[in-house]
């Protein structure tokens, strides 16, 4: 009996593993995003007159675009958790909210008079926005990275980046209900920067944590 045969005999004695359930991971991931965001909204409160603010069609986009990024990137990372799987439609659809945000930014830049373009930018407003989204991303990033170890990511940095993107986009979705900055030049820029920071951190951690 060769050592490979012995290894096979030993491995075959193991009880079968618990099933890999993307659905369970998705549910827990969403909970890890929603709980910190809900706690933040309970403590800080939603913006006043949220619904009447949504009369301006640009304002609901502030919530809808990150929500779309969050869901699509979660679907993509779950697909990529199985060896040999392709990113699928969700991976390509991920480009649409990103493209929409770019168009929104360019459109606002072209339409707004120069003095109003970056009128809201200040250390306090930008710091609040970046800080809140990044802080709200920490718990979901850690939780989803842990959950994803049940799978087998073939490209750990890529999967880690998608984890960061899912977490930050989910955090931004929650934060957008509090945020009163309705200028697309403001929210696309700073939500986008927060998203990039957390995505980069996710790629760096994922490269280590998701190896197997």
């Amino acid at each position: 009996m060769t050592s490979t045969d012995e290894l096979i005999a030993r491995l075959a004695e193991d009880p079968p593993p618990p099933a890999f359930s993307p659905r369970r991971i998705a549910a827990l991931a969403m909970a890890s995003i929603a709980l910190p965001a809900a706690a933040f909204l309970l403590a800080a409160g939603m913006r006043p007159a949220l619904l009447s603010a949504w009369v301006n069609p640009l304002v609901p986009l502030k919530t809808a675009l990150p929500l779309a990024i969050c869901v699509l990137s979660l679907l993509t990372l779950l697909r990529l958790a199985r060896p040999g799987a392709r990113p699928g439609i969700a991976g390509w659809l991920l480009l649409t909210p990103v493209a929409a945000a770019t168009v929104l930014w360019l459109g606002a830049f072209a339409l707004l008079p120069p003095a109003e373009r970056f009128a809201e930018v200040g250390i306090a407003s930008v710091g609040e926005c970046l800080g809140a989204i990044i802080l709200l991303s920490i718990i979901p990033t850690v939780c989803i990275l842990r959950l994803l170890r049940e799978g087998a990511a073939m490209n750990p940095p890529l999967s880690g980046a998608l984890v960061g993107m899912t977490a930050a986009a989910g955090a931004a979705t929650g934060y957008s209900l509090f945020c009163t900055q309705d200028n697309p030049l403001f929210f696309v820029s700073w939500y986008g920067l927060a998203l990039l920071v957390v995505t980069g951190a996710g790629a760096a951690f994922g490269g280590r944590v998701l190896r197997w």
Binding site: D14, P83, E150, G151, A152, W212
Partner: peptide, 9 residues
């Protein structure tokens, strides 16, 4: 071993 540890995926 890798197949064994990831067979549920």
């Amino acid at each position: 071993l890798a197949i064994h540890l990831k067979r549920q995926t």
